[in-house]
Amino acid sequence: MDSVKKSWVFRITIAWFALIVFFAIFGPWLPLPKWDQVFDDALSVTPFKQGHLLGTDSNGYDIFSGIIYGARISLFISFTAVFVGGTIGSAIGITAAYVRGKFDYVVSTLFNVVLSIPNLVLSLALIAVLATNVDPNVPTSTGRRIMVLVISLTIVIIPILGRIARAATLSWSNREFVLAARSMGSKDRNIIWRHIVPNVLPAIFAVAFLAIGVVIVAEASLSLLGAGVPDGTSWGSMVARGRNDIEFAPHIIIIPLMCIAFTVIACNYIGDVIRKQLDQRQAKL
């Protein structure tokens, strides 16, 4: 672990994470223009010009502000989806693997079915169902769209992490210490909490970080397809808005794309580090 902590890749990764989380939380209180404040005199300005750190887009929005406000929505959506989906998925996966039998059969079949549908298709379908209003003339509110987005991505995450949790639980609940705990009179609830959950948690965490990356990309893809957050901004919707300017002002989409890429790579890297720790721990056992 110490050698990992000292490596500069690890430090940069952590620094990047800290930075975007800081922006996501404190963005609105920073002395910056609002993301949708229009600078009429500065359309598609390249970075470091006219007092705009990362330039502006063709609407005259400040890109730096956009990135910071966007971090808020992108991270909110992905963390919430992974946290909620992970919790629900793990609970289902662990219970199924612990009780086995019919319940387990039904759960694992369901997981497999859901996993066989491509992410995007699934969330698009869910959004289509959840976000349409009864009255087609009234557009759905931003809050509701975000909610729907989160819910659909959560549903995508449930089987991914659920399956990991189930597999990990299967490998642990076969160990004799679980039998031993039962023979001592431990209640099932306590066995799951004390013996199983702590042992499967690291495996779930490793995959959860990978899942955050998946969700950030999914959100961006949905924005490109026009199913993202309508007003309000996320990194994905910045890319979507800038896609027509790619020829004469490429920085408009390159900057948010790079943020997405860095964050996804950082998530994968952290996931990998956890995975390696896990393997080492397993090697010790």
């Binding site: 031993a180 023979s183 001592m184 004390r194």
Partner: peptide
């Protein structure tokens, strides 16, 4: 009834929680 009946399991390492 369980406390009155205990068992020492066959595989010593896996009968202990590694954490």
């Amino acid at each position: 009834v369980r406390p009155a009946m205990q068992m020492i399991f066959q595989d010593p390492v896996s009968s202990l929680d590694p954490r």
